[in-house]
Computed example of a mutant assay.
Amino acid sequence: MAGRLDGKVAVITGGVSGIGLGTVELFVAEGAKVVAADIQDEKGAMLEKRFPGAVRYAHCDVTREVEIKAALDLAVSEFGGLDILFNNAGISDGMRVLEEIEAETWSWIYDVLVRGPALGMKHAAPLMLARGGGAIVNTASIAGLQAGWGPIAYSSAKAAVIHMTRVAAAQLSPRKIRVNAICPGLIATSIFGASLGLPRAVADQMAARVADNAAKVQPVPKAGMPDDIAQAALYLASDASAFVTGTHLVVDGGITVGSRHAWDQSGPSPFAELFGEFSTPQPAQAPSSGS
């Protein structure tokens, strides 16, 4: 049975753990050759061994343009070209308020989350044009859509990714390169622990805690997993989305559909706080017949 990415070549940044790893696994299963670009060299070597001939690892710090270009060029030298770029590498800072964040931290967040994908698209576009087109997928976040889902630098950077995706799509879609974004919700990965400055091993343990508890805070009663985002990336990278560009796909278990009372009747309602007893439906009374 043919895979949905047969004959395709992809580069996935942040590709050896979390969402990136789940996407590498799915893309390979669907027939793609993949360059997994990351800074975790030991995990990258293990990934190559798992998928001999189908995956190559490239050390890639996305704040370094030369390393981004090298990872993309590796797709050409090893697999013959480039069809898909998944700009997925991500970081977060601690849950800081505006007056506490340092300028250096702000710049670092933007370098990874905005400048990195921008440079990825810059160097991917000529390679995709040589193949007659391609698909670019950028990882944004629900934090880029609403306040309260991430630190301020991270959240504003993800909002920038959403709009950058639109502008890039306007420029590249006429040349058959589609550009879209995914906005994950609570996904069980180590980024939550990393945002608190925890060591990677502890952050990985925190991912299990997210998996155990996320189902309780959203309409869809299951934890978001890396494969949920990988499936969205597969759709946006494949020919199934040939008519889709310049948009963002929210994959969040419904957590952003509204406040809790919208989907959980036991949750607190702002109407109850405002209007008290008047917010509770009263039993209908029979009209008076008069006399």
Rank of each mutant, 00 (worst) to 15 (best):
A194D: 10
K222S: 10
A153I: 10
G132L: 06
K122T: 02
G144I: 07
P117F: 09
S155Y: 11
M164V: 06
R131H: 06
V210H: 00
M121C: 07
K176W: 13
Q231S: 02
M128A: 09
Y235N: 01
A147R: 10
V161Q: 02
A207I: 07
R131P: 01
A125G: 08
L236Q: 01
Y154W: 04
N180I: 04
P221I: 00
P219G: 09
T189H: 04
R166P: 04
L186C: 09
P226V: 08
G134S: 12
L145Y: 05
A214W: 00
S173K: 07
A233E: 00
V137W: 01
S141H: 09
P126M: 10
R175H: 12
A201G: 07
M206Q: 14
S155M: 10
D227F: 02
G185I: 04
C183W: 00
A170N: 14
G120W: 13
R209L: 12
D228F: 00
A215R: 08
A188M: 07
V179Q: 01
P126N: 10
P199H: 04
H163P: 04
P226G: 03
L145S: 07
A147T: 14
Q205Y: 11
T139D: 03
T189A: 04
A230Q: 00
Y235M: 08
V161K: 06
P184Q: 09
K158H: 05
P199I: 04
D204K: 14
G133P: 07
K176Q: 13
V167M: 15
